[in-house]
């Protein structure tokens, strides 16, 4: 028996909006610790990992580990039927071939019930090494979204150059070139507006904007985004780990005491000069 109740159903809507255009079929792994999902896009260039802790739910019961494989487009269509302020309840029986979604209106006078068919997915599961990244940039998520969108007008790839005092996002294409430079901010009253750079060495790497624009769909989940990267190592060195990790924390919207209840992490392989 599995049952998870989320008063802020809008969080699930935002999560689906953030992943459904990147991966179509994926499995939710449900355990007593929470719900998680990991899937690659069809070209195997990016991977999305979502985690929601059990204590982020208002009620959570998971008697045994379950894998709920489903089409995310279908799930998204059904989740869209919930109002933003609805409570969403996910229920699954043991060994069933479907899950039930209940949407409770705030005044509890209306309950909508939907069922979605489950799929048996033979998904490829990649082991993500526990790695330390040399460069971490924290910045406002809406600024990151804007930069990726604007630079897509110029070229297919963004080159991220990071030094201690700031980070530069640049793109070049047939029409010309463009760049945006962000300086690290002094400690401010508004942490959500701050740009923080933590680094061991300077870095310059290129990534496909098509994917970063997909990742930026998670912007409504979090005011800040964290980019983690490591620099290239010369040829002949042991295998480098220079994927870019774009991370959004998932918080509950408790204004007085917000707490992190999970995350979305996107991993993106770099573009490398031949």
């Amino acid at each position: 028996m599995f049952e998870a109740r989320l008063i802020q159903g809008s969080i699930l809507k935002k999560i689906l909006d953030a992943i459904k255009d990147l991966v179509t079929d994926a499995s939710w792994d449900c355990s007593p610790n929470g719900m998680s999902l990991q899937a690659m896009d069809t070209s195997h260039v990016s991977l999305v990992s979502v985690s929601l802790n059990s204590d982020g739910f208002d009620k959570y019961r998971c008697d045994r580990n379950l894998t709920l494989g489903m089409n995310l487009i279908s799930l998204s269509k059904i989740i869209k039927c919930a109002a933003n302020d609805d409570t969403i309840i996910i229920k699954a029986g043991d060994g069933g071939d479907k899950i039930t979604l209940l949407f409770e209106a705030q005044n509890e006078s209306e309950v909508a019930e939907y069922e979605i068919k489950l799929m048996n997915l033979d998904s490829e599961y990649l082991g993500i090494p526990d790695t330390t990244y040399n460069v971490t940039i924290k910045m406002p998520s809406n600024k990151f979204q804007r930069i990726c969108r604007d630079l897509s007008q110029i070229g297919d790839a963004v080159t991220i150059s990071c030094a201690k005092d700031g980070v530069r996002f640049g793109a070049a294409g047939d029409l010309g070139s463009g760049s945006i430079r962000l300086a690290q901010t002094a400690t401010s009253d508004k942490p959500e507006d701050s740009v923080t750079i933590s680094m061991q060495e300077a870095l310059c790497q290129s990534f496909a904007l098509k994917y970063l624009n997909h990742f930026a769909k998670a912007t409504p989940l979090s005011a800040q985004v964290t980019l983690s990267m490591s620099p290239d190592v010369p040829l002949g060195e042991p295998l480098l780990f220079n994927v870019c990790v774009v991370e959004y924390n998932i918080s509950d919207n408790d204004d007085e005491n917000p707490s992190t209840i999970g995350f979305i992490r996107y991993y993106l392989a770099p573009k490398i000069d031949d």
């Binding site: 690659m40 070209s43 195997h44 260039v45 990016s46 991977l47 490829e124 599961y125 990649l126 082991g127 993500i128 090494p129 790839a157 290129s206 496909a208 295998l239 780990f241 220079n242 994927v243 991993y267 392989a269 770099p270 573009k271 490398i272 000069d273 031949d274």
Partner: peptide, 14 residues
Amino acid sequence: TPLQKTLYTFFLKS
């Protein structure tokens, strides 16, 4: 044009 790497280069298939 730069080559697009895939994640198989970085992550272990498990």
